[in-house]
Amino acid sequence: MNVDELILVSIDDHVVEPADMFKNHLPANLADQAPHVETDASGVDRWIYQGRVTGVSGLNAVVTWPPEEWAKDPAGFAEMRPAVYDIHDRVRDMDRNGILASMCFPTFAGFSAGHLNHFKDPLTVIMIQAYNDWHIDEWAGTYPGRFIPLALLPTWDPQLMVAEIRRVAAKGCRAVTMPELPHLEGLPSYHDITYWGPVFAALSETGLVMCLHIGTGFGALKLAPDAPIDNLIILA
């Protein structure tokens, strides 16, 4: 077997969401309440939702950077390889790298929508649905068969999660991203079957895969404050 002929299915990729991602997926009367990107005085692009600031990328967008420059610092779109946020450039790079299909975890929203779910309200449910519609219909849907759609959930309410699981499954989504250690987000642990049971049942019924991205769990570890970023990569 020639390793150069291998075709890969990558299940731990990331998308840096483009600044206009909500444009086509919200009613006009909610457009001004959507998460949006602002550039601060230092020239750093930041997502803002309901007044709360979140960085754009950090370690998710260091492709082509020299390893000594890898860090968790937010970066501007201008510093990134376009393929991290542009679907056409992404597929072009996938073709170059021999990647048949890719599953892309979110960036600004948080691996399990933790940044959006900071606000547990009806508006956030709409924003999560808009994110999922963008991810399924626009990001993954532009090149059918090249991406494994991955949806977010409103994790603070089991019935809302069940409803969104069924909604995205009907749209062709095959997986959802959920907290690695939910108790670190103030939620019941996965040992609480009363809380999570309906969610697990809905996932089983629809055949959706529950994906837990490593990262949240670093909050449970006491790491050396002066350790290099490689320390996290090794742990991962």
Rank of each mutant, 00 (worst) to 15 (best):
D133A: 14
H115K: 13
P35F: 08
E180M: 12
K120I: 01
A130Y: 00
A224M: 08
H191P: 00
I233C: 11
K120Q: 15
R52V: 10
V62S: 07
E79A: 15
T142V: 06
W65I: 04
P182V: 14
D89N: 12
F105C: 10
A31T: 00
P149R: 02
Y143T: 04
A113E: 01
A34R: 01
A34K: 01
P66Q: 10
R167C: 08
W47Y: 11
Y195Q: 09
K222A: 15
L235T: 03
A151R: 04
G110C: 05
H213I: 05
P198Y: 11
D12A: 12
M161N: 07
S102L: 13
A227W: 04
Y190Q: 12
F147H: 09
N97A: 15
L184P: 10
L30E: 03
A34E: 04
W70D: 06
G217D: 07
L153A: 03
L123T: 02
D226G: 07
D4E: 15
L150G: 05
M210H: 10
S10I: 01
F218L: 11
D20R: 08
V125W: 00
V44D: 01
G215V: 06
H88Y: 10
H25K: 02
L223K: 06
A109Y: 07
E138L: 05
G207D: 07
Y143H: 15
E17W: 06
H115A: 09
I126D: 04
M210V: 03
L187R: 09
E68C: 06
P225S: 05
M80R: 05
I229F: 08
D95G: 09
I233H: 12
V9T: 12
W47C: 04
E5I: 06
L208D: 03
G110W: 02
L123K: 03
F218R: 11
G219M: 07
F105L: 15
Q129M: 05
A202Y: 04
E164L: 03
T107I: 11
G110E: 06
D20Q: 13
M21W: 08
R52N: 07
L26W: 00
L123N: 06
D13L: 12
G145N: 12
R146S: 11
R90E: 14
P27Q: 02
P35L: 05
A31G: 00
S57D: 10
A41E: 15
L116A: 08
M94G: 10
L203F: 10
T177R: 04
D230E: 15
H118C: 07
A78Q: 13
A202P: 03
E205S: 09
A169N: 03
K222F: 09
W47R: 01
M103F: 10
A202I: 05
G215M: 07
T124V: 06
F77I: 02
E5C: 13
A34G: 08
Q50H: 04
E185C: 06
Q33C: 10
R96P: 00
P225A: 02
P149S: 08
V53C: 01
V62L: 08
I214E: 05
R174V: 11
T216K: 03
E185Y: 06
V91Y: 05
G55Y: 00
I214F: 11
H36K: 13
V125R: 00
C173K: 00
I7E: 15
Q33K: 15
G58K: 02
A175V: 12
H183I: 11
A41F: 07
S42R: 09
F147E: 07
V199Y: 03
A41R: 11
P82Y: 11
S102T: 11
V168I: 14
P122Q: 04
P82E: 11
T64D: 14
P27D: 02
R174E: 12
